[in-house]
Design a protein around this nucleic acid. Structure first.
Lengths: 159, 159
DNA sequence: CCAAGATACTTGCTTTGTCAAGTAATTTTG
DNA sequence: CAAAATTACTTGACAAAGCAAGTATCTTGG
């Protein structure tokens, strides 16, 4: 029987704060991407492949934080653009392994400087230590397993 | 001609870190929303209206972090669902003011407990102080004006 | 070995995000 | 005070997000 403040203000809402912060950061990044010819999602895919090497679609989707279905739909175009290659490993033909091409790598490298500059500007304005601190906190946050024991409602266990 | 570490690992990339963190937080929230019958965006709109009262579309869009055009398209359905009402103020008939209905309020309140529980779980696992610290950092980050002096490209000044 | 179950994507559909234009209602200015 | 700007939305068009189903491929238990 409490009339407690059930909700925190949206200004102080974590999901919205994350959204807003991302909007701020992505502003200049999007400007850079315009000149690269790829969009945000394709850029993330290229970055993942550049960094981790050839991978299965599921893995790429997880790393690049996009749905497998979305990834499926962008692979075709990216292959045609010559940015990546697609292959089916003989040992498991359900899978699709994609890899970045030299052209894709070139595109990524061509914007490394701009990308670094953007980060530099953020770091300069925000402060190196605070940025590191923020990244640490975000990293820890994403490690939380919130799927475990719900407080009251038994999580839907189907699926 | 440098093979310097032009990119930080995606794990340490601020845009991706923000995305991932948001995914983590939104997981349980989305579960809750499924049972509420509204999606994330509609939920944000309802929360804004519940918290700030009747407002013009532009204001709601800014508060709920969505584009005015997107909001325009969801207002119709939400009115039909009986969650909000729409009105044109006589003193300025360009505007549209929306307000939450008792039904909309009921929907929001019906999930206040779950919502609070989710936040509680995050706070419990993450730590109250660290959560506050994170919110402070995010709030400061979103205040940055990164639109100022681009490194090399002259920012599009039109608009 | 074979039907039943997992996996790893694919597709279909509806809702949003984005951007560019367009429209109606005020304000401002010559 | 009428034409030119502004403001506040709307619409259109198309890519992408999300969610539900569907389709090959393995993998397994009987």
């Amino acid at each position: 029987m409490t009339d407690a403040p059930a909700f925190r203000q949206t200004r102080r809402s974590l999901p919205i704060a994350l959204l807003r912060a991302r909007e701020t950061v992505m502003g200049p990044v999007r400007d850079m991407l315009v000149s690269s010819g790829v969009n945000e999602q394709k850029w993330r895919v290229l970055r993942v492949l550049q960094e981790k090497g050839p991978q299965e679609l599921s893995q790429v989707a997880a790393e690049a934080v996009l749905l497998l279905s979305s990834l499926t739909r962008m692979v075709g175009p990216m292959v045609e653009e010559g940015l990546i290659t697609r292959a089916t490993p003989p040992e498991d033909r359900r899978k699709t392994v994609v890899a970045i091409t030299p052209a894709g790598l070139a595109l990524v490298n061509a914007h490394a400087a701009q990308s670094a500059a953007i980060l530099g500007r953020i770091e300069a304005e925000f402060g190196h230590d605070r940025l590191e601190q923020l990244l640490d906190l975000l990293e820890d946050l994403q490690k939380l397993d919130l799927r475990s024991g719900a407080t009251e409602s038994v999580r839907k266990t189907r699926r």
